[in-house]
Nucleic acid binder design. Structure first.
Length: 807
RNA sequence: GCAGCCGUGGCGAAAUUGGCAGACGCGCCGGAUUUAGGUUCCGGUGGGAAACCGUAUGGGUUCAAGUCCCUUCGGCUGCACCA
């Protein structure tokens, strides 16, 4: 069969007949299959894209044949840095290059032959879409979930923009690898921390890979502890520290404030002023990477002020040190040198006292610092208590005195969403000298991104230099005002696109609530694991926030998630242009066809693992197709009649139904490789039957027919053609997927292994209805000689599997 | 450093979740068809002459361990002074 011809033939017919149009009236049977949308890069689709889209499409077709109304849309995450950087280099406007890339990618995606309904396509970079991204921003603002604050933020000096916490990897910019520095800037944040608890709790509801859930759990980082309030000697002010080890409170020998803590300026004594100022300045210059280095020397200076420990009234010095983070807890910690690794190192360095207040439990290490839990000592009324009890008891006591409280903290930070870049959705806010920060009225949306802008990076938002954009009338007072010059992080655009797909043409609303509540949540979401703590977390946050605003009635956007593995270059490294190991599917496809290529990807790799590319097996897929096709041609001109099933037919029928059952189960779990192995076994069984039985009945044709149906989701063009060759009505994808006949799986006889002392010694064949005692006596008979007449100590019968005789 | 995952033939990988390790395919070997090569079809293929031994290593639990528990080694991923 000329697969290349066949593929374009059916792609045309599928398009002409609208085979993959989504039928809204069947929404009660909907099955929303979503692949993470792509960034429209200039490069062609590579093997990795096919690895994402091909198998997902197989899954979608399987669901369709099971009777679901599959909704499988496709679109483009079209705002973002690469287009802008490309523009800076070449002068080609991001909008022009992006739209061109999209057109190219659409064409290539169509070659995969997937069941996308292109009527629901979307691009995030067009006003019809980003109008609603802006609308969403305004809703979050109204709800108090979008706010502006000055804070130390991550700044990438190469991309000339701030970054979210999640976009800093090992102290480097996720995009370009430049070392990130810290800056104090006023920026827009989304209050994702408000949902920390629910984001954590609802992970239990999700059918997601455990490792992904664990990553989110760790990222959210819930920690139980308490706050302890310290008074400042000779002053009115007090401050609190957060600790998870209140049981060590009697061992506090100093306290430390973060350099950014506003209290520092208040309490520093005149004698220490200069030293503290210098320290603060140096701390602000430290790059993220230096700050993260574990070998980094701990530093700090005295403020000259003293705090009073509420548990024992002791005066301890207050220091400033940058190992304390302003953004976590209270920005202040108590220093317990004897029982905390970091405090110990710090105290040694600065010559601060070390006092032990917890005795090691039996077997615990007795070297400083004693970080393990033990029994409290030198702790007044708490002496003798275990750490476990004490850390609660100490806080409880302070609570009664109004000097402490049990407290839970999260490591999750609010999401910084403003970017000093051009190619993104403008933030719909206006700055008015008289009215302050004012939201753009919803009726004025979208705030259009102007085309003619100088986006040469210089650390200032490109839009700030575009006067026609910046100048605006204040919607409150009517006086001249300025627009916000920043754009939104592209993750904002991609955090709600799954809500837009089913209602992508809606010009009145972001989406229709009633409709979206029927179409969502997504039933199967497919995409890379690298999004665990970014996109996947943000999307969950948006869904929950929109639910609380009444726009949605579900809690989670993606019920079930699968990560596809990565196809590496044949050298075992990640495919990259610079390495020159990018595998283009083009050659393979023009030689073997798209179906063979995608079947090869599904068969040769474990879907969630991926692995290094090699094309050794592609020929074999081609041969396998030929083998299947020959079975179809065997059905031509045969004189089929009906006849009762004999032994051979029953055997093949068993394999057929077993295949149906296994393949269906494997497709549910994205185990494409084993599903195809079962199909191959089935083909082998049909051949065995064919050579053994000369007088065939219509049973043979039924078996071949089922084979084509079974294979159709894997090799859609090929099987559509085979279906036609079998004289069946168009389309194979309107057929029901074969359903296993459980009766056919009931065998008259089964084979069991017989073990003596767990070693295989014989095989027996027994009636499938045989009782345990019948099996036992058959087994004993089979190994009689080897037992030498000795009575077995014990016999274990595992029905359907084996018999183990303990001699 | 902390957390998690992984380690199975010459190769890609399976193993119904504690029950006959290596399914399926590649490669290789042999046979049939063919003038020959290729194609196709059939058979073999973890090691060992065998008893037996085999799932990175050493121990443990169990009638039974690739699977569960502990040790060591190697690889991957995430987090990284979060008090």
């Amino acid at each position: 069969m000329d697969l290349i011809k066949v593929e374009s033939k059916w792609q045309k017919i599928w398009a002409d007949t609208g085979l993959y149009k989504f039928h809204r009236d069947r929404v009660d049977k909907k099955w929303y299959v979503l692949e993470m949308f792509s960034y429209p890069s200039g490069a062609k689709l590579h093997a990795g894209h096919w690895y994402n889209y091909g198998p997902s499409d197989t899954y979608a077709r399987f669901k369709r044949m099971q009777g679901y109304e599959v909704f499988q849309p496709m679109g483009f995450d079209a705002f973002g840095l690469p287009a802008e950087n490309y523009a800076i280099k070449t002068g080609i406007h991001p909008q022009d290059s992006t739209m061109k890339n999209i057109a190219t990618m659409e064409e290539q995606l169509k070659k995969i032959g997937a069941t996308y309904d292109w009527d629901y396509e979307l691009y995030t970079c067009v006003p019809e879409y980003y109008k609603w991204t802006q609308w969403l921003f305004l809703q979050l603002y109204k709800k108090g979930l979008a706010y502006r604050k000055e804070a130390p933020v991550n700044w990438c000096p190469s991309c000339n923009t701030v970054l979210a916490n999640e976009q800093v990897v090992q102290g480097e910019c996720e995009r370009c690898g430049t070392t990130v520095i810290r800056k104090n800037l006023t920026q827009w944040f989304f209050k994702i921390t408000e949902y920390a608890e629910e984001l954590l709790r609802d992970l239990d509801k999700l059918d997601w890979p455990e490792k992904t859930k664990l990553m989110q759990k760790n990222w959210i980082g819930k920690s139980y502890g308490g706050e302890i309030e310290f008074a400042i000697k000779g002053r009115e002010e007090t401050f609190r520290v957060f600790t998870t080890r209140a049981d060590t409170a009697f061992g506090v020998t100093y306290v430390v404030l973060a350099p950014e803590n506003p209290l520092v300026d208040v309490i520093t004594t005149p004698e220490q002023k200069a030293a503290v100022e210098e320290y603060k300045l140096n701390a602000s210059k430290v790059t993220e990477i230096d700050r993260l280095a574990s070998t980094r020397e701990k530093t700090g200076v005295m403020t000259g002020a003293y705090a009073i420990n509420p548990v024992n009234g002791r005066e301890v010095p207050i220091l400033v040190a940058d190992y304390v983070l302003a953004s976590y807890g209270t920005g202040a910690v108590m220093g317990v040198a004897a029982h905390d690794e970091r405090d110990y190192v710090f105290a040694q360095k600065l010559g601060l006292p070390i006092e032990r207040v917890v005795k090691s439990a039996d077997g615990g290490s007795d070297d400083l610092p004693y970080c393990d839990y033990g029994v409290m000592i030198n702790s007044g009324e708490f002496d003798g208590m275990t750490s476990e009890e004490g850390k609660i008891a100490v806080i409880r006591k302070l609570e009664k005195e109004g000097k402490g409280a049990l407290k839970t903290n999260y490591r999750l930070r609010d999401w910084l969403v403003s970017r000093q870049r051009y190619w993104g959705a403008p933030i719909p806010m206006i700055h008015c000298e008289h009215c302050g920060v004012v939201p753009v009225p919803e009726k004025d949306l979208p705030v259009r991104l102007p085309y003619n802008v100088d986006f040469t990076p210089d650390g200032v938002s490109p839009l700030a230099k575009c006067e026609e954009f910046m100048n605006v009338t204040c919607p409150v007072c009517g006086r001249p005002a300025r627009r916000d010059p920043d754009t939104l992080d592209t993750f904002v655009c991609s955090s709600w696109y799954y809500l837009r797909y089913p209602d992508n043409r809606n010009s009145e609303k972001a989406f229709d609530t009633e409709w979206i509540n029927k179409m969502l949540p997504v039933d199967k979401y497919i995409g890379g694991a690298e999004h665990a703590c970014m996109h996947l977390l943000y999307a969950r946050f948006f869904t929950k926030a929109l639910r609380d605003m009444g726009y949605l009635n579900f809690d989670e956007p993606f019920l079930s998630l699968v990560h596809q593995g990565t196809i590496l270059g044949s050298d075992g490294f990640k495919m990259s242009k610079s390495r020159g190991n990018v595998v283009s599917p083009d050659d393979s496809i023009s030689k073997y066809g798209a179906d063979a290529f995608r079947v090869y990807l599904m068969f040769g790799f474990s879907y969630v693992e991926g692995g290094p590319w090699n094309d050794n097996g592609l020929d074999s897929i081609s041969r396998f197709f030929d083998r299947v096709e020959r079975l179809v041609t065997k059905c031509y001109g045969m004189n089929f009649g009906d006849a009762p099933m004999q032994k051979a037919e029953k055997e093949l029928n068993y394999v057929r139904n077993n295949t149906i059952k296994s393949v269906s189960a494997d497709l549910e779990t994205f185990s494409f490789n084993t599903a195809l192995a079962r199909v191959m076994e089935y083909v082998n069984a049909i051949y065995a039957y064919d050579s053994a039985v000369s007088a065939k009945t219509s049973f043979f044709k039924d078996c071949v027919r089922d084979l084509v149906l079974l294979m159709a989701p894997f090799a859609p063009h090929f099987c559509e053609e085979l279906w036609e060759m079998l004289g069946q009505p168009y389309s194979v994808f309107n057929q029901a997927y074969p359903v296993c006949d459980e009766k056919a799986l009931v065998r008259d006889e089964i084979e069991l292994a017989v073990q003596i002392n767990s070693k295989l010694r014989a095989r027996i064949t027994v009636a499938s209805t045989a009782s345990k005692s019948e099996i036992e006596s058959e087994a004993l008979k089979a190994v009689e000689a080897q037992l030498n007449g000795a009575a077995p100590k014990k016999v274990i019968v595992v029905p359907g599997r084996l018999v183990n005789i303990i001699a």
